[in-house]
Amino acid sequence: MTPIARQPLSLGGRDPLPYLVLPALMVLALAAMKFSAWLTLTVAGLAVGCMLFLAAIGLTLIFGLMDVLNFAHGGFVTLGAFIVAAVFAALPASGGGAAAALGVVALALAAAAVAGGGLGLVFERLLIRRVAGAPLRQILITVGGGIILQQMLIVLFGAEPLALPRPEALRGGFIIAGAAVERYRLMVCLLGLVVYAATHLALNRTRLGLLIRAAVENREMVEALGFRAERLFRLVFAAGTALAAIGGVVWALYAGMVTADLGADIIILIFIVVIIGGLGSVSGCFLASLLLGLANNYVGFLAPKLALGTDIALMLIVLLWRPRGLLPMDGA
């Protein structure tokens, strides 16, 4: 029997230290407040973290494989937000039961993914391919592309904010150990975990993921082995923009409103997450998102005056400790 048939793939060793930051932060926060407040803030922080992850994972994937920092990423998040508004307008989710509401949300997620991925393919073909390997041009063209995308969405959906009431089934929550836990936040946590697990498994346990990891490291050699790296890149770009649109759906339902500025409003936060996590790292992106979500909630509760600077302060601390981010790309 050949060794390949005999043995599973190995993911290799990991530095455990960055993974300890999250539980350490949670334990420190627990020591500083009542359990019920801690539980409420923790669930809310994890939910915001998962939303950030959903919005940011596409950016880190695209950078990791293609070396492209897509400044139009926020535009795809906004696209997802408008798609869910359109789906809800066409199929009102509030009237039916929980299953119907979840069905409409699932449909909105699928429609956003298809629209985000499809538009991403067009975007890659028309703009990104022309500026491969030219970082300054990439910045200019993706910033410009993002503005065009935003203006097109305004033309299609209007400049006025659209109200997006959450379906009845996703409103309210329940009390656990004296802490209020919202249903929607739990759903977001679940979705974030599913997307993280699916991305991690796809990258680490499939032949396609293996190819992507190889192409990240040495595109030329992947091509010399007979694989079409360009197709891989197109696929990853489309997956990245589809995930951004999914992130937009989740953010819009959380905010209860859709504006053309939604993506632009959170793009700085998305970049902070991607930098803290380590450019190109999926696990780093997940860890950084949760860290940012929790840190914002804990600091906002314990020292409200410091809350505004939490994101930047966290980024500075992490980069002073680990200049390449918590889990740089080779640990993806």
Binding site: L9, S10, L210, R213, N218, V222, L225, F227
Partner: peptide, 21 residues
């Protein structure tokens, strides 16, 4: 190639999985 072109972050097994397109 001169630099050998092995994928350093992948295992030996994974490098072999890419031997045949």
């Amino acid at each position: 190639p001169e630099n050998m072109g092995v994928f350093a972050s992948l295992t030996v097994a994974e490098n072999f999985r890419l031997a045949d397109w």
